[in-house]
Design a binder for these strands. Structure first.
Ligand code: NAD
Ligand code: NAD
Lengths: 217, 217
DNA sequence: AATTAAATGTGAAATGGTTAACAAACTATT
DNA sequence: AATAGTTTGTTAACCATTTCACATTTAATT
């Protein structure tokens, strides 16, 4: 009996990329098989959690043996659809947008930034690491067919205006660095990367820990 | 009876910055009081969750009235210690490091990047938006006293070597953009910002949703 | 082929987090 | 001062996730 037909927990979904990265690394190293406790050492997730997560995707392992690395690579590669390139648009070519374009997820050949847009005339017309920057006003015409994913690196205030334009152009997945919650269609999936909040909550935790240590002394 | 003496849940800690941002915004708008259901509209967190979260920090509100915005601002400002500036070091002045320096958490005057380090001689000696870039090898001498926070924007491979240097120099809180888990002291708090994983899991979710929609049709 | 050793996959329990619902507490009004 | 109306803070139920612990399955060995 397997768990593979059940809904995949959100927490598990967020770990799929970590698993894939570790499996890829093992494959590059020529490792043929791996046990859940070895994977646990690599990615710092308890082995029971790993086995439970894997079980959602079928019976990938063998008792008394472990997991075949190539089998895992195939399974997780399929989950992430790494065989078919995902073409991505960047909106906002400021410091962050530019950094993303230059890096272009180099480690992941399936993730490819193919185009960028900005409202600043000084940025429009440039080509950054081979990625053309077009005027945001021309997005509908310039967005290549098949691009359903966008990364927004625009100021918070601009975000609300950008989202509907993206949606009308066929974008359904958006990652944004502006933290203000934005209205979107129910069919659009948005992920917020809130660097300031991450830092602030990290600092809260660190100070709290320090206070604990001080008390013990 | 209040919940304020109990341990604060991790999930609540991660929301503190969101609360603070919303409260600040209300204060700028001259709003004097706010109810939990209004806050809920602003930050898209259920009002019951907001009240539960707030209760960890004392009885901040009044029944039949709501919360005084200035009282909330004081309480959450104290939690985040916004009165005392946190001085931050950046390690790695590539695309991402540079973008962080130029932005410098402008919206949050208490978060201040004061210094940067890199191993690339071409970068050392520069000043970016007033922030000096020093040689990483001189970190111990150049890190100003009182800097306990660092943001690492170096390649994954370099990360493991950087952490102990930071720890020896007195850094206890680290935010890093390289996703490989790194060995650190038990007194060091690390937060990983894994942009590739975020994008990959976002895409997984979006594709899954699309498949669902397709089935319903 | 039989036996031993090992590691998976998963019930079941524990932990962590969210939310409905409401008594109690407070404001506003008369 | 009494009453009506409002909203908090919290209880209790719920849901999600993690983790323990082990029956089961498979590999390896004799
Ligand atoms: N860089 C950081 O350290 C940092 C930290 C926290 C949050 N953020 C957030 O990340 C986002 C981007 O940061 P950044 O440093 O790259 O900002 P930036 O100001 O350098 O760049 C923003 C770019 O967006 C462009 N833009 C503005 N409106 C636009 C529109 N409607 N359509 C298309 N392009 C538009 C601007 O012309 C500019 O090039 C911002 O929302 C910022 O708040 C950045
Ligand atoms: N930019 C992106 O889109 C993106 C996406 C995902 C992950 N990341 C990660 O973020 C990190 C930074 O990204 P980036 O685009 O700025 O990279 P980058 O290559 O542009 O910059 C890295 C910088 O770190 C410096 N460096 C290397 N070793 C160092 C050391 N030991 N001490 C100090 N400095 C050192 C380099 O000289 C360089 O200036 C990387 O780990 C990258 O994997 C970036």
């Amino acid at each position: 009996m397997s768990e593979q037909n059940r809904r995949i927990p959100r927490a598990t979904i967020r770990r799929i990329p970590l698993y894939y990265r570790a499996i890829e690394q093992l494959q590059r190293q020529g490792v043929q098989r791996v046990r859940s406790d070895r994977l646990s050492e690599i990615i710092h997730i308890p082995s029971a959690t790993i086995r439970r997560d894997f079980s959602h995707f079928g019976e990938l392992g063998k008792s008394g043996y472990g997991y075949s690395v190539s089998r895992l690579a195939a399974a997780f590669g399929a989950l992430l659809e790494v065989e078919s390139a995902e073409h991505i648009a960047i909106i906002g070519v400021g410091g962050l947008g530019r950094a993303l374009i230059v890096n272009n997820f180099r480690r992941n050949p399936d993730l490819t930034i193919v185009v960028a847009f900005d409202i600043d005339p000084a940025k429009v017309g440039q080509s950054i690491a081979g990625v053309p920057v077009y005027a945001f006003t021309e997005l509908a015409q310039r967005l290549p067919p098949g691009v359903h994913t966008a990364i927004m690196a625009v100021p918070s205030a601009a975000q609300a205006a950008v989202v509907p334009v993206l949606e009308n152009a066929g974008v359904t997945a958006i990652m944004t660095f502006a933290p203000l919650p934005v209205q979107c269609r129910p069919t659009t999936t948005i992920r917020y990367i809130d660097l300031t909040s991450e830092l602030q909550s990290l600092l809260f935790t660190a100070r709290q820990r320090e206070a604990q240590v001080a008390k013990v002394d």
